[in-house]
Design a protein around this nucleic acid. Structure first.
Ligand code: NAD
Ligand code: NAD
Lengths: 207, 207
DNA sequence: TATTCCCTGTTAAAAATTTAACAATAATGC
DNA sequence: GCATTATTGTTAAATTTTTAACAGGGAATA
């Protein structure tokens, strides 16, 4: 399948979460306008996204929820899934692991790293924490493709460098320090303060 | 000033963080291409954003870092600042308060709420935690305009409703449950899983 | 003082994303 | 069975966002 637009990928993730939610409520089918309402977007956009991933609903019945969940899974998780590491087992790192635990996704956190002896050689929500010195070794052995950085910001650049050298393909950076990686590594950065400041701005400047 | 584009507002927040960073390194001026490099964007975009906020650099010297920080502060924080509450003092809520503490921003967290007696009537990083029953009262007294929701997802909708009734103007929702609020309330939602799944997708589908 | 160079500010073009419009058609009601 | 209704799929238009192009103009050089 051709590459999907950035924004469509983000929405697919949200569609899936909403669809799973509907499934637990006993719903088996859903209309574009229902899904749109849940995500605060327009029904057209839902239909367009669904068109882009090559799925089709049935007229007057809408979309089959299970089928859509499966298809989105194939697209995002891929059939083989991916293996993930968290670097920095502080508040955020631990919270993340607990949050992802038990989601039953094919994206699995299989290792974590820290340098603090209080953190290393322990297991958090089923994820073992190694000393960061062993990172390259474990990344290879465990076939890890994605690293999530939740260390203090100062060390984030060197962590990123080492992850790249170890052969990782994607980095999700939660420190406020903006990173630089080679083109072939996909980098996503998120800072809570930006979200908060965005709300602050639009609260004061909304029409 | 006319309303700025969504994306520009997000970047302003990042500009400011990067500029503060440069300031501590002793830099007083910066070129568009330098700032662009830090944010992985193009110099044109930097210049355009700066044009939109009505600031001007000097030819051959670039932009005055302090002046830009001040101006961005006026735009995002506004002169009076805003007062913020966190609802749900679990892992994420506490982490957030610690993270924002000591940033010296005009956006200040002035209260937090929980229902668990283990959490209430304590102070975390200088922020008092009240029982959620007192929320409406405190929101009025403390003139709180923004609420950050970090409760379990199940209760998020009812929390949001009550925040809206209490007269809040903006909500930042970190639970994976998508919310619905009246138009006049600005809503921003963020789910870490979406970021992770986005990385997962583009790692496998990058050209 | 002329010339070159570098960097800004801005308008115009391009690209990405969203929204509108509507044809097609299965189910429903009469 | 025929018209009506509801809903999808898709093309085209509109909007938003990014990128390109380039005209200034101040500093440096000579
Ligand atoms: N806590 C939040 O809500 C929040 C929000 C946004 C961003 N952040 C950012 O996320 C990051 C983590 O925040 P936190 O609250 O979890 O911090 P934290 O101090 O609790 O955790 C950081 C962890 O990284 C470990 N570490 C330090 N150096 C390391 C290294 N070289 N290699 C591996 N591990 C190392 C530390 O031992 C510690 O366990 C910070 O950059 C913070 O700015 C935090
Ligand atoms: N921890 C993460 O990394 C992470 C990441 C993304 C999203 N989230 C989401 O953020 C939210 C919080 O996560 P967490 O790990 O901090 O959970 P948590 O269980 O540690 O904290 C939740 C807190 O909310 C309080 N609470 C429960 N009901 C309440 C109510 N009605 N009013 C006020 N407070 C109430 C609880 O007492 C608890 O202190 C969850 O929705 C979670 O899914 C967490």
């Amino acid at each position: 399948m051709k590459n999907l637009p950035d924004k469509t990928v983000e929405r697919l993730s949200q569609y899936r979460r909403s669809l799973n939610n509907q499934l637990t409520k006993g719903k088996t089918n859903i209309f574009s306008h229902e899904l749109a309402h849940l995500l605060h977007i327009t029904p057209v956009q839902v239909r367009r996204d669904i068109m882009l991933i090559g799925y089709s609903g049935t007229l007057r019945k809408g979309y089959d929820i299970k089928e859509m969940i499966n298809l989105i899974g194939k697209i995002i998780d891929t059939d083989e899934g991916q293996r993930i590491a968290v670097i920095g087992m502080g508040n955020l790192g631990k919270a993340f692991i607990h949050y992802l635990h038990e989601k039953g996704s094919k994206l699995r956190i299989v290792a974590s790293f820290d340098v603090n002896p209080d953190k290393t050689n322990k297991t958090y929500a089923g994820v073992h924490c190694y000393h960061f010195d062993r990172m390259a070794e474990i990344v290879k052995k465990e076939e890890i493709t994605i690293g999530i950085i939740t260390t203090p910001p100062e060390v984030a650049p060197q962590i990123a460098d080492k992850l790249v050298k170890a052969g990782i393909n994607g980095i999700l950076n939660y420190t406020p320090k903006l990173l630089s990686v080679p083109d072939e590594v996909y980098l996503e950065e998120y800072d809570m303060i930006t979200s908060l400041e965005k709300v602050a701005y639009f609260v004061k400047h909304r029409d």
